[in-house]
Simulated assay, not measured.
Amino acid sequence: MNTDKVVDLAEAIAAHVHSGDTVALEGFSHLIPFAAGHEIIRQGITDLTFCRMTPDLICDMMLAAGCVSKLVCSFFASGSAGSLYEVRRRLEHHDPEPLEVEEYSHHAMVLRYHAGAARLPFMPIRSFAGSDIPSINPNIKLVADPYTGGTTYVVPPLNPDVTIIHAQRADTRGNAQIWGITGVQQEAVYAAERAIVVVEEIVAPEVIRADPNRTLIPAHAVDAVCVVPQGAHPSYVQGSYDRDCAFYREWTPISKDPQRLQEWLDDHVRNTADHAEYLDVLGRDRMAGLAVGSRPSGSVDYGRRLLGTELAAAEAGEHAAARTSDAAGPADRTEGTGGAAGTPATTTTDGGQA
Rank of each mutant, 00 (worst) to 15 (best):
L99M: 08
R284D: 08
A331N: 08
H93A: 13
A10V: 11
V110Q: 04
Y241E: 05
R284V: 14
A191K: 02
D223W: 04
R126Y: 01
F34S: 09
L311I: 06
Q262E: 07
R173S: 11
Q186S: 05
G174I: 00
R209P: 01
G180Q: 01
Q168W: 04
R88Y: 11
R243N: 10
F128Y: 15
L57Q: 11
S131N: 05
A273Q: 14
P55R: 05
V162P: 03
D95C: 07
K5F: 04
T309N: 12
A204M: 08
I32Q: 11
V225Y: 02
T152I: 05
A246V: 13
A14M: 02
L265Y: 02
I136Q: 09
P160N: 00
G174H: 02
G82N: 00
E92T: 15
P205D: 11
G174Q: 02
D47H: 03
C245Y: 08
T252Q: 04
T347A: 09
A340C: 15
A144H: 06
G352C: 03
Y85I: 04
Y104T: 09
P138W: 09
P218R: 10
P258D: 09
L290K: 01
G298V: 11
I136A: 12
G82F: 00
A192C: 03
E102Q: 13
A167N: 03
D56I: 03
R126G: 07
P160A: 00
P96T: 10
C245W: 08
G342C: 07
P258G: 07
E103L: 14
T172L: 02
A313V: 08
F122L: 00
T46A: 15
R270Y: 01
Y302A: 15
A328N: 06
D211F: 12
T152C: 01
E318V: 15
A224H: 01
E201G: 10
P134K: 15
R286T: 13
S299Y: 09
P98I: 06
T46E: 15
V198F: 00
N2P: 00
H275N: 13
Y113V: 13
G239R: 00
T334F: 15
R260Y: 14
L71D: 09
A314T: 05
P205K: 05
S105M: 13
P96C: 10
V155S: 01
V6E: 08
A129D: 14
D326W: 14
G82V: 00
F122D: 13
V6Y: 06
A316N: 04
P156M: 04
L282C: 07
G283H: 06
D161P: 03
D161R: 03
V281T: 12
P344V: 10
R89K: 05
H268A: 12
E201T: 08
L282Y: 14
